[in-house]
Computed example of a mutant assay.
Amino acid sequence: MSPLLALVGIVALGLSLALPVVVKPLLKRLGVIDIPNDRSSHSTTVIRGMGVAVAVAILVALVLSLATGLVSVDRSLIAIILCMVAAAATLGWIEDFRGLSIRVRASAQLLVGAVGTVALATTIDDSSYWWVPVGAIAVATYINAANFMDGINGISGMHGVVVGLFYSAAGVLSDQLWLTVAGLVLAAAFAGFLPWNLGRGFVFLGDVGSYLLGATIAAIAVTGLLAGVYLEYLLSPVLIYLADTFTTLVRRARRGEPLYIAHRQHVYQRLTDTGLGHVQVSLLVTVLSALTGAAGFVSATAAAPLAVSASLFAAAVVALYLYSPRIFRALARRRAAADA
């Protein structure tokens, strides 16, 4: 690791660790708090909006990577990602502070994705404009996936760390320094948030943080796809999040339930209902995401038999996750029967 790359990572980590000292009392004075609802996995009001600190850490670190000359090739890609991330985080902050209608939120998310993808297509390859609708939908989809999945302590911070590390490794393997830098910054910034989210007097990311997480991952993924990075590198670390979100929405749609109403039907939420703690579930989601990520990295470049085996392994991991609440519920019943 070069000294400049290490410096950028340390700045992202350090700012994310230190800024909450200032941001937390400010959020308290502004009354930015999370009030438990039907979707909540906590029972007390908690300060939210700490994603502001993580956003500043990511944006400063990305600017530093440009200012120091660390990223001298494909500088515009980092700049576009930076703008997309800043726009999404701002949207999330408005949602935290004032609230927005579903229509306005969805339109703004699609706009961030569309404008960002147009800028990327213009920079990378003018023939890629047909990707604009795909990019818009991808960004909006993952912003909402990250928002839906941000319901227990540790899960978003760990997700940012694991996806960031995989993306950084993908940059090394693809010889694309911008991707190495962006992935490292993502991982370091969310690693710095974890002590605040898991420690005593914990705080939440809020919409500003979940929008930030989703937009950063989606912006990096869309950029990587247009830049020729293997799809498996970009998609495999986020399969668990996507599978949980998609299957939950399908299940609720089949029941005729309004998709925008708060609920506790996600797989990770049902896992906490089996008796597992927040950190246990967050670790499970993270480990399984790491397994699908590793499988994707293998399948991207391996010979056909090994690639197929890796893909089947990733599918089995996703299936195991989706079925896991039943497994842990059965184990809990057996323990209860044994203790009776």
Rank of each mutant, 00 (worst) to 15 (best):
S16A: 15
N153L: 08
R270E: 10
G183C: 02
Y167M: 10
V54E: 02
A330T: 13
A182T: 08
S128L: 14
W196A: 02
N197F: 11
V115F: 11
S289G: 15
R335E: 13
L13Q: 05
F193E: 00
A315Y: 08
A119H: 04
G31W: 10
V85Q: 06
L66R: 13
V115G: 06
V132H: 07
V63M: 12
M149D: 11
I155C: 09
L194K: 03
L186E: 02
D74T: 07
W178H: 08
V132R: 05
V104K: 10
V208Y: 01
L100I: 04
G256P: 10
V229E: 13
P20K: 07
P133N: 10
Q176H: 10
A57V: 02
N197A: 10
M158H: 13
L291H: 05
S107K: 00
A218F: 03
V203S: 00
G51I: 08
I35D: 12
I80T: 02
A307P: 00
D96F: 02
S76A: 15
A87G: 00
V23Y: 01
G116Q: 10
F166K: 07
G183L: 01
A219W: 03
L320G: 15
A138Q: 07
V63P: 00
V298H: 04
T117I: 06
G183K: 06
V238A: 12
N144V: 13
T292I: 11
A243H: 13
A114C: 04
V132N: 09
S16G: 03
I152A: 09
L271D: 09
L59D: 09
I80K: 07
W93E: 02
L320I: 07
A121I: 09
L198E: 05
S65P: 01
R48T: 09
A140P: 04
R98D: 08
S210W: 10
L271H: 12
S299T: 13
Q109M: 09
L64R: 00
G293H: 11
V185D: 04
L5N: 06
A114N: 00
G256H: 12
S324I: 03
G51V: 08
T68G: 05
G183M: 04
I143F: 05
L77Q: 14
F202L: 02
L288Y: 04
L194I: 11
L312F: 13
S76Q: 14
L111C: 07
L288C: 03
W130A: 15
L62E: 14
A138P: 07
T122L: 13
G116N: 06
A227L: 05
N147R: 10
V115C: 09
W131L: 14
Y260G: 02
A215H: 00
V132I: 13
V162G: 02
F297N: 05
A114K: 02
T223H: 04
A227V: 04
R335V: 06
R105L: 06
F202I: 01
S76D: 14
G277L: 12
S40I: 09
S101A: 03
V161E: 07
V46Y: 01
T301E: 09
